[in-house]
């Protein structure tokens, strides 16, 4: 090799901005992921701006406008764009406010489960031995319970309410992350590059979180996006049973549960619209997760 240009044309700048630009380049190649991200950002925006863009309060009841259909149907009213529910509350406004709760639940539950699961899983997979045995048997015990039942028991102990429901769901989701992380760490730990880092003098902490963990992220990101949607659904189920969000709260799952009696009657909008909101949100998050995995995995990058 006879390279004469030493720094010519090659940027050696590894600053954060450059890395972000690189990340965006690979992420934007996946069109579905971009659509998902746009929708997700819109949703976040809607959630933040809820008090200003919602046409009515989430708990305001209009006694003269009970069970109105959406505006494009017969009997529809332009001031209630997506119709009203059984006690005359505007469904659009409730959906807009509900985005706050659902996103909040998803983010918090996934974060707690992810962070806790990763730390416990890495420790178990890295140190093995009795530490591993102890942790994994504990996780097996949690996994042996039906998830909703265990969450119910935990909420019964902690007391009903949205925050406690979220903690309970996070605890129930934790073992999945622990198992995934542990399996990935175990398979990476014996690779030569880890030993090379060790020979270079890397400490246990550096080996665990800087060398091994970044190579285990792909399954974790996918699991996290799935948990995000599951968290919203489980929180809804707890709300339905009276242990999660309490009734006037416009949480999507609670709305869905409240509208159960309209599933087979003519008022389809009361039950369909919250369901569609959950569906589209979950789909968007899954698309983003897919794009993230592609963008974060250098093995899938094309040079």
């Amino acid at each position: 090799m006879s390279e004469t240009t030493v720094h010519g044309g090659v940027s050696t700048d590894s600053s954060l901005r450059r890395r972000l630009a690189e990340f965006w380049y690979y992420f934007s190649e996946n069109r579905g992921a971009v659509i998902g991200l746009v929708f997700f950002l819109l949703l976040v925006l809607v959630a933040i701006l809820a008090p200003w863009i919602a046409p009515h309060g989430p708990a305001d009841q209009y006694r003269d406008a009970v069970l109105l259909p959406p505006v494009w149907q017969e009997r529809g009213n332009a001031s209630y764009l997506l119709g009203t529910d059984a006690v005359g509350r505007d469904i659009l406004s409730r959906l807009i406010y509900g985005a706050r709760y659902s996103l909040f639940i998803g983010v918090i539950v996934t974060s707690i489960a992810l962070v806790g699961g990763i730390v416990i899983g890495v420790v178990a997979g890295y140190f093995r031995g009795w530490v591993d045995t102890l942790i994994m048997r504990l996780m097996d015990i949690i996994l042996a319970f039906p998830s909703l039942l265990l969450a119910l028991v935990l909420v019964a102990v902690l007391g009903p309410g949205l925050i406690n429901a979220m903690i309970a769901i996070a605890l129930v989701f934790q073992p999945h992350f622990v198992r995934l992380t542990r399996a990935a760490v175990m398979s990476e730990k014996t690779r030569d590059y880890v030993i090379a880092s060790k020979v270079a003098g890397a400490s246990h902490l550096r080996l665990m979180f800087k060398t091994i963990l970044p190579n285990c992220t792909a399954p974790l990101i996918v699991q996290a996006t799935l948990s995000f949607s599951n968290a919203i659904l489980d929180a809804a189920a707890l709300g339905f049973l009276g242990y999660g969000a309490q009734p006037p709260t416009p949480e999507w799952g609670t709305m869905l549960a409240d509208a159960r009696e309209f599933i087979s009657s003519g008022q389809w909008w009361v039950v369909t619209l919250p369901g569609v909101a959950i569906l589209v949100t979950v789909l968007a998050i899954n698309l983003v997760g897919d794009g993230l995995r592609d963008a974060l995995d250098p093995k899938l990058k094309r040079s």
Binding site: D192, Y193, I195, A196, T211
Partner: peptide, 20 residues
Amino acid sequence: RRKVQIIFQNPYGSLNPRQK
């Protein structure tokens, strides 16, 4: 550490795929 270093057999496994 600085005195002894090693080179492995398999060059595909000895470099961290996420490190430049």
